[in-house]
């Protein structure tokens, strides 16, 4: 029977990320060492080593191959993915959505902003953000 799965990417490398709470307890977590993706980004060895030593501390399997093919092969019942703005990852996520049932889990909020922020300049954003930026958990459960 197909099982749920967590696909951890390079911007969510901690066990306290909400993606682990969203998934059922004990859900298998994988990170995919995708050669094509990494070489496209042209990361220096510094970045790759930093990521790898972080991954080694996590309860996650590191699988090598093409991300979409691996997820298709595992065929999870549902795939939990941490939200990101990184274009390379969002592009892969779009492809994954054609082979798996996906739930994207945002990280903890830094601030609570109820109305749409003016996102062209920092200080209009800050005027709204500062109301909760000084509160524990950004005012979520303060």
């Amino acid at each position: 029977m197909n099982q749920p799965l967590i696909w951890l990417h390079e911007e969510a490398l901690r066990v306290t990320h909400p993606v682990f709470r969203a998934a059922p307890e004990g859900t298998r977590a994988i990170y995919v060492w995708d050669d094509e993706y990494l070489s496209q980004l042209d990361y220096s060895l510094k970045r790759l080593v930093f990521m790898y030593e972080t991954l080694c501390e996590l309860p996650v399997e590191i699988l090598r191959g093409d991300t979409v093919s691996i997820i298709k092969q595992i065929a999870p019942s549902i795939l939990y993915i941490p939200a990101t703005t990184k274009p390379h990852i969002t592009s892969t996520m779009s492809k994954i959505k054609s082979v798996a049932n996906v739930e994207v889990i945002p990280d903890e909020n830094f601030v609570t902003i109820t109305k749409a922020a003016d996102i062209r300049r920092f200080f209009p954003y800050w005027n709204m953000a500062q109301k909760t930026a000084f509160q524990k958990n950004g005012g979520i459960d303060a």
Partner: peptide, 25 residues
Amino acid sequence: SLISYVKTLAPWAKGDPSPIEGGRQ
């Protein structure tokens, strides 16, 4: 030994590792 292993995975990666180490600890 971790660095040597990563080099075998990404022989195209340029430069040397950073003295700044990753990980939660």
